[in-house]
Every structure is written in C-alpha cells, then in structure tokens.
Amino acid sequence: MENDLISKKELLELTGISYGQLYRWKRKLLIPEEWFVRKSTFTGQETFFPRDKILARIDKIKNMKDDASLDELADILSPNPSDIEVEKDKLVKEKVVSEVSMDIFAQVLGIPEVFDFQKTLYVYLVDKILSSGEASAEEGKIILKTLAESFLAFEGKQCDLLFVRKLGVSFCLLIEGQRQVSLDPGAKLVSRISIASVVEELKTKLSNGGFSDGKQ
C-alpha cells in the first residue's frame, strides 16, 4: 500500500502545480475528499494521495482547463449525475451503447423518449459489462434492476458495482467505493466496476459527442 501513495510535496514537485491550485481544485471538488489520506510522519501529520489516481486526475484537469471553466470541469468529474438529456435513438446511433443493451433496458424499465443522465448511466453500465463478455443478457437485467432500485441511495458517494457468480448462480451488489469485500471460496468475483470512474468516462463521452447542446 505504501508504494501506491504519493505525498503532497512530491505531487506538487512532480506536476508543477502550486498549493493554491491544489486547494482551489479541492474546493471545487475536482479532487475528491477521499483521496486526501492523512498519515502521521516524523514531522507531524502529512497528506498523501493515491498515486495513480491523483496523477491521472491532475493530468486531466491540466489538459481540460483551457477549454472548460473549473465549474464545468467539476461537473464532468463529480460522481453526481449531470443534467444531460439524450434521445434514445441517438445513444444507439452515436454508438454510446449497443442495440442489445437498449433492448434489455426496454424490457426491464420500459423505454422513455429521452434519457436523462441517470438512465443513460444505467444502460451504459449494462452495456459495458455485457460487451466485456462477463455477463449474459439475463444477468444484465439483474444488474439493471439493482441499479434502478438502489443506486440513488448512494447519492454523492463513490460506489462500486460488484458482479458475483457461484455455481452458476449470479448476483450483483452495490457497495460504497473502495471498501474491501471478502467472498466465500466457492464464489467468484466476476467484475468490479467503480461507478464514479464510469460516470466520468460517460460524461466526457457525452460532452465530446456534442450531446449537451443538441448538435447532430
């Protein structure tokens, strides 16, 4: 675990950002609170970050901050849904999700005229897990039901989607992000997806695809 962390000092040196920027980004929630890990060192308390995540994030902020304001960036990077609305056909046409996933969505939750971000996220998650070949269409429905019923309860918190199979029986769980889970030896954790990172991926995809301003 020690090697996966980077101290604040080292981070600033490595990325060339200033304390002012780091705290500003923290205030704008561009860097999640959970990434600030406090540890005691010989000089007292110091702050550390998960190395890969923070470096990737700062790289992303530095690249994007010329094109978008900090508030827009915060919207893209936050785990909370944005207020994007997309038409059903467009999601398939722009290859955000496959036709198969859309059908599954229709069977479980019905098909709305426009997809708000929440629904887009559900169908995108199912599409992701289906196209990885880790789950069947039938299992996709279970995942979709779980999401529809429980995802909102995690409002604002990081959360992970776990998909588990044992002796041919499959089920899925939603847990608070980065928590450790132990399964009995007979069960197999097929897939674990961090929803926050998928949200980020989807938002980037949607904002690049011109979905937010309704262009074709």
Binding site: K9, Y19, G20, T43, Q45
Partner: peptide, 22 residues
C-alpha cells in the same frame, strides 16, 4: 495552527508546527 500551506505566506503572531510555501 498545525500546518499552513500556500503560495505566498506572510505571518506574524503565529504559532505553527509546519509552514510550507513558495
């Protein structure tokens, strides 16, 4: 204060364990 971190820091009448800045 336990720690003060900033780019430009100007302090008087302050008792701190660590001050870090440019």
């Amino acid at each position: 204060v336990n720690s003060i971190e900033g780019d430009d820091i100007h302090l008087s009448n302050t008792r701190a364990k660590v001050v870090r800045g440019n």
